[in-house]
Amino acid sequence: MTTRTWFITGINSGFGRELAEQLLDRGDRVAGTVRRAGSVDDLRQKHGDQLWVGDLDVTDLGRVRAVVDAAFAAHGRIDVVVSNAGYGLFGAAEEVTDEQVEHQIATNLLGSIQTARAALPHLRAQGGGRLIQISSVAGLAAHPGASLYHAAKWGVEGFMEALAQEVAPLGIGVTLVEPGGARTRFAGGSVRIAEPLAAYAGTPAAFVQTFRANPPALLGDPARMMARVIESADREPAPLRLVLGSDSYQAVTAALRARLAQIEPQATNAASTDA
């Protein structure tokens, strides 16, 4: 088993917490970020110098680089950088406020972009490494009532897929993780629901209004999911996408097939615009 040093945003709960615990228990070093001071004191007490903690809200884009730089300075080398911090904003596009839109994009998209950009000079200087982006089934398959969440996740999918091609010659691998529903605090604590408009009552988008009170049955085991993420760091070349959960696999493959079915009949029409 290879011992590594990992940088992970958002280790106080959910996937980030699970990933950090597994890595620390197996002897790896973790540089993790939290928004709430003291939220991982138990891990510090248990693992001591194995765990380095930086205070970071990824919407503070200027501070992202400072914290990433500090983590690399403290450890000399970081093998894997995991962009995990994020949350779900649900509601019809018309129901969410401008402030909610801006915060969702700043957290789930711009925070991830800046984390990767801040890490790249260090990864290049050390001759390689791995970038892992915790995305979602929502990055490849869309559902009414989650348009802004999809906007951020689809944006990060495009960014990371292009970035993977840019940095492959530099020895840097990129992986997008596509988990389906998982039994984390996401449904109960990390989801924000827009105030409903009567116009959307009874429409497909209205399902989100009962999401927190009656969350759907979730298949995914966070511990197993993060174990697969850890295993992916040993794979060469880095898998561009890591689909986790049978629900994710089914939704993603159905969405891709539907997209092809819409596009493939257009070959003649598409060619008709060539000069």
Results as ranks from 00 to 15, higher is better:
Gly10Leu: 01
Ile11Trp: 09
Ile11Gly: 13
Ile11Lys: 11
Arg17Ser: 04
Arg17Trp: 02
Glu18Lys: 08
Leu19Ile: 01
Gly27His: 08
Asp28Val: 11
Ala37Ile: 12
His47Thr: 05
Gly54Thr: 00
Asp55Cys: 03
Leu56Glu: 05
Leu61Phe: 00
Leu61His: 13
Arg65His: 11
Arg65Gly: 14
Asp69Phe: 00
Ala71Pro: 15
His75Leu: 05
Asp79Pro: 13
Gly88Ser: 07
Phe90Val: 09
Ala93Gln: 07
Glu94Ser: 02
Glu94Val: 01
Gln100Ala: 00
Glu102Ile: 00
His103Trp: 07
Ile105Cys: 03
Ile113Lys: 04
Ala116Thr: 11
Ala118Asn: 02
His122Arg: 01
Ala138Ile: 10
Gly139Lys: 14
Ala142Gln: 14
Ala142Cys: 12
Pro144Met: 00
Ser147Tyr: 04
Ser147Pro: 10
His150Leu: 09
His150Ser: 06
Phe159Gly: 01
Ala164Trp: 06
Val167Tyr: 01
Gly171Ser: 07
Ile172Gln: 04
Val174Pro: 03
Val174Asp: 06
Thr175Phe: 13
Thr175Leu: 14
Glu178Pro: 03
Pro179Ala: 06
Arg183Phe: 00
Thr184His: 02
Arg185Gln: 15
Gly188Glu: 07
Ser190His: 05
Ala199Gly: 05
Ala199Lys: 15
Val208Ala: 15
Val208Leu: 10
Gln209Asp: 13
Thr210Cys: 10
Arg212Leu: 04
Asn214Gly: 08
Asn214Trp: 10
Pro215Asn: 06
Ala217Pro: 15
Leu218Phe: 12
Asp221Gly: 14
Ala223Thr: 11
Arg228Trp: 06
Glu236His: 10
Val243Ile: 12
Ala254His: 07
Ala255Tyr: 13
Leu256Ser: 13
Ile263Tyr: 08
Thr273Asn: 02
Asp274His: 13
Asp274Cys: 04
